[in-house]
C-alpha cells in the first residue's frame, strides 16, 4: 500500500463537526500541518465506535502543527495522530494562484478580451 501522504506533505485537516466519536479534536479542525510519518493502518474509529464490525482500515499519520496555526500564538509544536480520512493535501499556494488567475480572467472578460491581448 503506497501512502497517500509521504513525510513532509503539507496537509489540511477537515473542518467538519461530526455527531459521533472521532479522533480529530476540535482544536485541530480545518488547520494546516505537515506529515511527520505514517504510523501503520488501523480501523477508522468513527465507524468502529458503532460496534458493527465493518470499519474501513486506513493509514494513520503523525501530523505536526505550529502553535501559531492552532492558537494564533505560541512557538511550540503539537503532533496529532490522524486517520487518512481526516486529511487532504494542502494545495493552498496552488489554489491561491488559481484564484489569482481566475480573477485575472474575470477582469479580462470584463474588459472584453484576455489579459495577454491587452
Amino acid at each position: 500500500m503506497t501512502d497517500r501522504f509521504p513525510p513532509g506533505t503539507r496537509v489540511r485537516t477537515f473542518h467538519h463537526d461530526p455527531p459521533h466519536h472521532t479522533r480529530l479534536p476540535r482544536y485541530a479542525r480545518g488547520k494546516r500541518g505537515v506529515v511527520v510519518e505514517p504510523e501503520g493502518p488501523d480501523e477508522l474509529p468513527d465507524i468502529s465506535a458503532r460496534g458493527s464490525g465493518d470499519a474501513p482500515v486506513e493509514q494513520i499519520y503523525a501530523v505536526r502543527f505550529e502553535a501559531r496555526d492552532l492558537w494564533g500564538e505560541g512557538d511550540h509544536h503539537v503532533v496529532l495522530d490522524l486517520w487518512e480520512s481526516y486529511l487532504e493535501e494542502d494545495l493552498a499556494e496552488d489554489s491561491e494562484d488559481d484564484l489569482a488567475e481566475d480573477l485575472e480572467d474575470d477582469l479580462a472578460d470584463d474588459l472584453g478580451g484576455t489579459a495577454d491581448e491587452r
Binding site: 480501523e43 474509529p45 465506535a49 460496534g51
Partner: peptide, 12 residues
C-alpha cells in the same frame, strides 16, 4: 462484548 471505541464513545 464491546470494542474499545464503543467504550470511548460511551464515556464521551
Amino acid at each position: 462484548v464491546f470494542n474499545t471505541n464503543e467504550f470511548r464513545d460511551a464515556i464521551e
